[in-house]
Simulated scan of single mutants.
Amino acid sequence: MRGLSKTLVYLYLGFGLFFVVFLMYCGLKSLTVTVPKNAQINEVVTFTMHCGAEPRIQSGTYTTQLLAGMMVPKSWNARQSMVLTFTSPKGNGTMRIIPDTETEPVSGLNWHQAAKKMFGIGPNLVDDMEWIVFRSVQAYTFSNNEDIDFTVKATCNVGAENMLVSLGFYVGSSIENLRQEDTDYKKFTFSDVFEVMGADGDLIDFVNPQLGTVQPVKSLDNDIITLTFDAGVTNTVLDAESNIYIKVNAYDTEGELISSLNQPNEKTKLTDVGGLRYMIDLWPRGFFDVAKNKQIARLEYYFTDQTGTKVVGYGNTDEPFKFTFRCD
């Protein structure tokens, strides 16, 4: 009889939990976004999120605030320019960015960090992104079957750099927070590739696999940088080579050649880190032995074999990879 009593208690608890969840379900519809294919540098662009609420509340009401956010490149400085507004049958409004000092209860991080931890950077291959989360000023109360559609518009300056990037979007309910297992109260998605055009500098490609990359993407000539050759991206003339070297030229702010290192040797050899990837860490000023009165503005480089005759450039062509030093 004691075993039977325990079983009945568990059944009652399970039924009670199901009953509470059933009575208080107010999920969100799927999220879709409207994103233009491209924009000019420093253009203020509008990105649109389409979503809706589906309240299934058998007893009482459900009151919450709308959460919405975007993931954008850090170089956009979006915290200074981004504005979120929304329209809905329950009213329209402007949203406010959630302060960094406010903790998202589930993760213990601030809301922006919590969103990045949960949603990641999507199809982007370079992690120079930030999530920015906003909350509606007003709270809204729903009753059973009071389904609505709503639209969130985010306007933002897209920065001053050429780039290809996939943007992230999120909508949610304030009282539900960011629980990992909860998919009903949070919806997120990533856009197709969005291009920013019109700058004189290099193209920053966040989404396409690159034969050659530099990390961090923003640095000065006095910072340590890592150059990577990813031989797994496509077939090149270096496929059969186990020793990879770099040929690199350094230019000053006037476009004059400061130094050139074109000999395959221990100084210019990359380290095999496995997975058909090779890396070299270098401190540019020391690597090129730059005089104190000189500043390195950009690098142009190739990957080569031990003989220096097999050469791979940008996009597997004879054009050099280019990297411009910048910190803004």
Rank of each mutant, 00 (worst) to 15 (best):
K90P: 01
G91I: 15
G91E: 09
N92E: 08
N92I: 13
N92C: 06
T94Q: 13
T94W: 02
M95N: 01
I97E: 04
I98Y: 04
I98S: 01
D100V: 02
T101R: 07
E102F: 08
T103D: 02
P105T: 04
V106N: 10
V106S: 11
S107I: 03
G108S: 10
G108H: 06
L109A: 09
L109P: 10
L109D: 14
N110I: 03
N110D: 11
W111S: 06
Q113G: 13
A114G: 12
A115E: 10
K116D: 04
K116V: 01
M118S: 15
F119K: 07
F119V: 15
F119A: 07
G120R: 04
G122T: 08
G122K: 08
N124P: 05
N124R: 01
N124A: 09
L125N: 10
L125C: 09
V126D: 05
D127S: 09
D127P: 10
D127M: 12
D128L: 05
E130R: 09
E130W: 05
W131A: 05
I132W: 07
F134K: 03
F134I: 01
R135L: 03
R135C: 13
S136K: 00
V137C: 08
Q138T: 14
Q138H: 15
Q138C: 06
Q138K: 13
A139P: 03
Y140W: 02
Y140I: 02
T141I: 11
T141S: 08
S143A: 13
S143D: 12
S143G: 10
N144G: 12
N145P: 01
E146W: 05
E146D: 12
D147W: 14
I148Y: 15
I148C: 06
F150Y: 12
K153F: 07
A154V: 03
A154P: 06
A154R: 04
T155N: 04
C156A: 14
N157L: 07
N157I: 07
V158L: 11
V158G: 08
G159M: 09
G159N: 09
A160P: 04
A160T: 10
A160Y: 12
E161G: 03
E161F: 11
E161H: 12
N162S: 07
N162D: 09
V165Y: 04
V165A: 00
V165K: 00
S166F: 04
F169I: 00
Y170R: 00
V171T: 11
V171E: 04
G172P: 15
S174L: 03
S174P: 00
I175P: 01
I175N: 09
I175E: 05
E176M: 06
E176C: 04
L178I: 13
R179D: 10
R179K: 11
R179L: 09
R179M: 12
Q180C: 07
E181L: 13
E181A: 14
D182G: 07
T183H: 15
T183F: 15
D184A: 11
D184P: 01
D184C: 03
Y185T: 10
Y185M: 01
K186Q: 12
K187H: 15
F188W: 10
F188P: 00
T189G: 10
T189V: 14
F190K: 01
F190V: 00
D192T: 03
